[in-house]
Structure formats: C-alpha cells, structure tokens
Amino acid sequence: MISRRKHKKEPETDLCVILFHSTSEAIRAESVTKKSGLQVKLRPIPRHLSSDCGICLTFVPSDRAKVEEALRARNVDYDRIDRLE
C-alpha cells in the first residue's frame, strides 16, 4: 500500500493550500472534499506558511470555488487559504 520512492522531487506546480486549526479539521476537510469528487492532497505544512507542525490540504487553484463551497456546505472550519507557488 505504501510506495517506497526514492527522493524524486515532484515538479513545482501552482497550488492552493488550506491551513487548519487542527489535524482533525484537515482530515475532515479531506473527507468532505473527496466525497464531493474533488482532487485534494494532505501534506505537511510548509515551514514558511506556519510554525505549526500539522498538515494542510492542497488542490489546484481552478478548484478553489468548489472546494470552498464543499467546506461551507458541511460547516468545515479552517484557518485560511494561501497560494503555494
């Protein structure tokens, strides 16, 4: 189930990132957006965005409105949405 890839840097793409107050919120947001058919990915928070040791949710900027709507519909709370470039 877990792939063991060698260090291969993924190509840097323009992404949106949602920061949350807690891991539980982030995982709930992942569950809610995936159920809406959206492509999202959880990853550790880049150090320059927050000192917190938690995780954030990334997605392509063109999905931003749909992601925000999906979260609003289920009352999922989050800290903020940033651009990861």
């Binding site: 807690s22 990853r43 928070i45 040791c53």
Partner: peptide
C-alpha cells in the same frame, strides 16, 4: 495521529 505530518501519522 495528529502529531506529525508524515503519511503514517496522517
């Protein structure tokens, strides 16, 4: 859970 950002913690 919730203590690290790696895939097993997630």
């Amino acid at each position: 859970p919730g203590r690290s950002g790696h895939r097993l913690s997630v």
